[in-house]
Simulated scan of single mutants.
Amino acid sequence: MDNYPTSWAPRSNVVVVAWVIALLLLVGTVWLAIAGDVGGTVLTGLATVSTGALALHGTLLRPRLAAGPEGVLARTVGGAHRYPWTEARLRLRTTRRLGRDSLTLEVESGDHLLVFGRIDLGEDPRDVLEVLTALKGQALS
């Protein structure tokens, strides 16, 4: 990461809250299992695993996106992906779901498309795109 001085990741407080919720759900799951509530145990167990997986994802894949003079680096479950500025296409995408607009940053290179939201980046995708555009302009000039 030394060559990538600018980076974005989920906010630490969001990851900590996810871990706390996962721990509370785990306690609830154990309590329901002891009480003999099979249905409740299954539901809270699924919620525990899901929340724990999200917390682990936010903990291990840091930073999610980094940028430097040579290009961008994106960390995913599949590993780290490096894209030079000459190959990386950056754009914002707004989608409307359930009456709510959602803004994402798309990083595209060849057949690869990576989509980052506000939670992934810890900042507004518009601000991240502004920084990335400036870095790309400096690198290509």
Rank of each mutant, 00 (worst) to 15 (best):
L73R: 12
V27W: 12
L98R: 14
R89F: 04
L113W: 13
A18G: 08
T41G: 10
L129T: 07
T76K: 00
T6I: 14
T94P: 03
Y83V: 15
G52L: 09
D124Q: 03
G40A: 00
D101H: 06
Q138G: 06
W85M: 00
T29D: 05
S141L: 15
G45F: 13
L60P: 04
R89W: 07
A22W: 02
S12I: 06
L132P: 12
G79Q: 05
L56E: 03
V131L: 07
P125I: 10
A53Q: 06
A53E: 08
G99Y: 11
S102H: 07
A35H: 02
D127E: 02
G58L: 02
V30E: 10
L24K: 01
L65T: 04
A47T: 03
G99D: 05
F116G: 03
L43I: 08
T95F: 10
T95K: 12
V16E: 04
L103T: 05
D2G: 13
Q138T: 15
L23W: 00
N13S: 14
R93T: 15
L25Y: 13
A53N: 09
S109W: 01
V14G: 11
V72E: 06
S102I: 08
T44S: 13
W31R: 14
H81W: 12
G99I: 09
T41I: 08
T76E: 00
R64F: 00
I119A: 11
E106S: 01
D124P: 05
R75F: 00
A18Q: 11
A53D: 09
V16H: 06
V16K: 08
A134E: 15
A67R: 01
S12K: 13
N3E: 13
A55H: 04
A35Y: 02
R64S: 00
F116D: 06
L26A: 13
F116N: 01
P125V: 07
L114S: 10
V128G: 09
N3W: 03
D124H: 13
R96D: 14
V16D: 02
G52A: 09
L43R: 12
V17D: 01
L90T: 00
L135S: 09
A35F: 10
L114Q: 10
L105K: 11
G99A: 03
R100M: 08
L32R: 12
V77F: 12
P84M: 01
R100Q: 08
N3A: 15
T44A: 04
L26P: 03
V17G: 08
A35S: 15
L132V: 09
S50W: 11
S102W: 08
T41V: 05
D124K: 02
V38R: 14
L61Q: 02
N13M: 15
S141V: 10
W8F: 07
G39T: 14
P5V: 08
T51P: 08
A139V: 10
V128F: 10
P125Y: 10
I21R: 11
T29L: 04
G71R: 02
P84S: 03
D2P: 09
L105S: 14
G45R: 11
V131T: 15
R91G: 04
W31P: 06
R126S: 09
T104V: 15
G137I: 12
A33M: 09
V27L: 15
S12R: 13
A134Q: 13
P5L: 03
R100C: 02
A53S: 13
P63F: 00
G78P: 07
L90I: 00
R82P: 10
G68M: 08
R126Y: 04
G28E: 12
G28R: 13
V115S: 13
L114M: 11
R91V: 01
D37K: 10
